[in-house]
């Protein structure tokens, strides 16, 4: 199996790469369209600001490519938020894979970012039966929608993971979530 992590200069991908390599998978980091399209699995990472990330995706044309991928794709953290329609962060238009979903900023009195280990609720789809704590770091959240396959509670209930056809997405960082994170990455590989 060949896995490609999309390289568009948004954040650190070394830990994601290492996590899949620990599972014995061949990983490359690439912005090359042919390489991304020919991969068996694609990971769409992201850390940082939504506007800067979308700008890079548009410049490289990856914004057009990603929604048309047919193999399993996993968006992580900002990657998941960019797969939605719109985000409040910079009022940026996303890739629109999760249609009609808008990303909001936490507006409650709790500490922001939501940083640390929090448990999954109502898991289904490729996360079925997983209710353990996973590692989150984010200031914006995806509301509950018909695509939600796991939620989490921090002041309000929000989407911890989404799924639509071959598109999977986690708000948390499976690569930093210990043993359960490893299990989640394995399930994506077997999806």
């Amino acid at each position: 199996m060949k896995l490609v992590i999309i390289d568009y200069g948004a954040g650190n991908v070394f830990s994601v790469k290492s996590a899949f390599e620990r599972l014995g998978i061949e990983v490359s980091i690439s912005s090359n369209k042919e390489e991304i399209m020919s991969a068996d699995r694609v990971v769409f990472p992201g850390v940082g600001h939504a506007s800067a990330a979308m700008e890079k995706l548009r410049t490289t044309g990856l914004d057009k490519l990603i929604p048309h991928l047919t193999k399993p794709v996993l968006g992580v953290c900002l990657g998941m938020q960019l797969m939605c329609d719109l985000t409040e962060e910079g009022n940026e238009k996303g890739l629109g894979i999760f249609e009609g979903v808008k990303v909001n900023r936490f507006a409650h009195e709790l500490n922001i970012p939501h940083m640390g280990w929090n448990n999954l609720l109502d898991s289904s789809g490729f996360l079925e039966y997983i209710s353990e704590d996973v590692y989150f770091v984010h200031s914006y959240f995806v509301p509950i929608s018909s695509y939600t396959i796991a939620s989490c509670h921090y002041g309000i209930e929000f989407s911890a993971a989404l799924q639509k056809n071959n598109f999977y997405a986690c708000q948390f960082h499976p690569e930093k979530s210990g043993k359960v994170g490893e299990e989640i990455l394995n399930r994506f590989l077997n999806a």
Partner: peptide, 11 residues
């Protein structure tokens, strides 16, 4: 740092 990230799966 590189070795830790390769081998450890917590932040």
């Amino acid at each position: 740092v590189k070795r830790v990230a390769e081998q450890v799966n917590i932040p």
